[in-house]
Nucleic acid binder design. Structure first.
Length: 234
DNA sequence: CCCTGATTCGC
DNA sequence: GCGAATCAGG
């Protein structure tokens, strides 16, 4: 796959919209997560809360990497160039937060917004945890511009718009929900595609459909005979 | 383990 | 320019 203008545009929008590299890669198809990250950096759009970047080290924070073909330079050279380095190190560049749109939201009762000069690390706060581990956010924490462009016109995409963005048989892997949506043979048949509930072939929601609680002994119906041909559809 | 993004470096 | 391999933090 090559980086066409369309693909680059999609990458850019999704990246800026906060989608993860994996999501972008999956959406684009034909590219790996690494490819997306590499491309994103080459495009110059980076800066994103990185799990590994929190640390503030002046230089190669570690991992000089192995020089496969050539042995690493002698440390002496490093020392030499390191010494004269002034390294101004101003206390705080004051990095003004990107300050996303003023958020027209009047945000009444915005909790704890008053006294804390450092309001949240721009990461949505978790308010509670739902069954299966999905995370609920506070109403005020919704990042509005995540998928900023549903009003898409012009749909020259090869797959029919009906099944665009749907998880097809080829998209199935160990990480996405295999719950069928619709019926095979139908034009828009696809799979759920949500992230699976770890350890199951389905997402949390569809695990609920697939694995139902047993009724008490007395209330149980005698199991219907399963002659042959496998389980029938519901 | 899973996930994340960052970086390097051979191609 | 590209992206696999690798690293490192959560």
């Amino acid at each position: 796959m090559s980086w066409t203008d369309e693909r680059i545009e999609k990458l850019t929008k999704m990246w800026e919209g906060g989608a993860t590299a994996s999501q972008i890669a999956e959406e684009l198809g034909g590219v790996s997560r690494n490819a997306v990250i590499g491309k994103a950096h080459r495009l110059g759009l980076k800066a994103r809360p990185s799990p590994v970047k929190a640390n503030e080290k002046p230089a190669r924070a570690a991992a000089p990497k192995k020089a496969k073909t050539a042995p690493a330079e002698p440390p002496a050279a490093k020392a030499a160039e390191a010494a004269p380095a002034p390294a101004p190190a101003p206390a705080r560049p004051a990095a003004p937060a990107p300050a996303p749109a003023p958020a027209r939201a009047a945000a009444p009762a915005a909790p704890a917004a008053a006294d804390d000069p450092k309001p949240a690390s721009d990461k949505p706060r978790i308010v509670s945890v739902g069954p299966g581990g999905f995370l609920r956010q506070g109403p005020g924490d919704q990042q509005a511009p995540i998928p900023p462009a549903p009003p898409r016109r012009l749909v020259p995409a090869k797959p029919s718009p009906e099944i665009a963005d749907k998880t097809s048989l080829l998209d199935l892997n160990d990480r996405v929900c295999r719950w069928p949506m619709g019926h095979p043979g139908e034009p828009d048949f696809h799979f759920c595609g949500e992230k699976v509930n770890p350890g199951f072939p389905y997402c949390v929601e569809h695990c609920g459909r697939a694995y139902q609680a047993q009724l008490p002994r007395g209330a149980r119906r005698p199991p219907p005979p399963l002659p042959f041909g496998g389980p029938r559809v519901r």
